[in-house]
Every structure is written in C-alpha cells, then in structure tokens.
C-alpha cells in the first residue's frame, strides 16, 4: 500500500505540512517495502484549483491513503471519489512520526 504524506521538505525526516494542495513536498511511502519517494509539489504557488490537481498527483502515484492537516472541499470530493482515504495529523512531527501514528491506528479519518 502507498501512503502519501504532505511535507515541508523531501524525505521521511521532513516535518509534516498541514496544508494539502499547497504542501511544498509530497512523500509517498510504500508500506510493504518501506521505500519512500519525494516529489516537489509544482502547485505551491499555483493560482487556484490546487486541491483537485493535487489529488490527481496522489492518484497517479498509486496512493490509497493520504496523511495531512486539512483538506478543502474540492480536494475532499476528489479524494472521496478516487477512493483515497485521508487521515489528519495535527502534530509537529516528521513524516516518519506521522506514518508511525497512522500504523498504530492513532490518526483520525477526515470526513470526505
């Protein structure tokens, strides 16, 4: 399973970013192999419509779970339709911390 996490920088040590579509980086972690891939988000300064475009990127990377702070209305609809589950991580830890919390079942599912 691929988990996509919004982050402020590349790598699993980077702090989690609360914003979804405008997060500077997306980190995709394969929970089977533990391999992580970081993508610089081209939408950081985009004028608008970032939510649906970000969801397309998550979908393209095969993510079925997203960990982030909050998602907007359009992004929520796209995630819901795309069958991608979103979990809220409100802490100040790293991508790895958020993933550990998720695995432990401590994260709350965001309503989509």
């Amino acid at each position: 399973m691929i988990v996509g996490i919004t982050a402020r920088a590349a790598g699993t040590d980077a702090p989690v970013e609360q914003r979804f579509g405008r997060a500077p980086y997306f980190v995709f972690v394969d929970t089977e192999t533990g391999k992580a891939e970081s993508i610089e988000n081209p939408l950081v300064d985009a004028a608008g419509g970032v939510g649906p475009r970000a969801v397309q990127m998550f979908s393209e990377h095969g993510a079925t779970v997203v960990i982030t702070g909050q998602v907007g209305g359009n992004a929520a609809r796209a995630l819901g339709m795309g069958g991608i589950k979103a979990y809220a991580y409100r802490g100040s830890g790293s991508v790895a911390d958020a993933l550990a919390e998720y695995t432990a079942g401590n994260l709350q599912l965001l309503p989509l």
């Binding site: 985009a46 004028a47 608008g48 419509g49 970032v50 939510g51 649906p52 475009r53 969801v55 397309q56 979908s59 393209e60 359009n74 609809r77 796209a78 339709m81 795309g82 069958g83």
Partner: peptide, 26 residues
C-alpha cells in the same frame, strides 16, 4: 491518460484511477 488534468490550470479536472472527476465551478 491524465493530460487534461495536467493541463488545466484551474483544477477543474482531476483524473483518478477509474474516472475523470469534473469541478465545473472551477
């Protein structure tokens, strides 16, 4: 293929694994 979603600067199209989702108000 996802080309439309990549081109649209307004986020009006989101190409998912099994369908294209439209946000007409965008």
């Amino acid at each position: 293929c996802g080309e439309c979603g990549k081109f649209c600067r307004f986020g009006a199209l989101s190409v998912l694994k099994d369908r294209v989702l439209l946000f007409p108000e965008l």
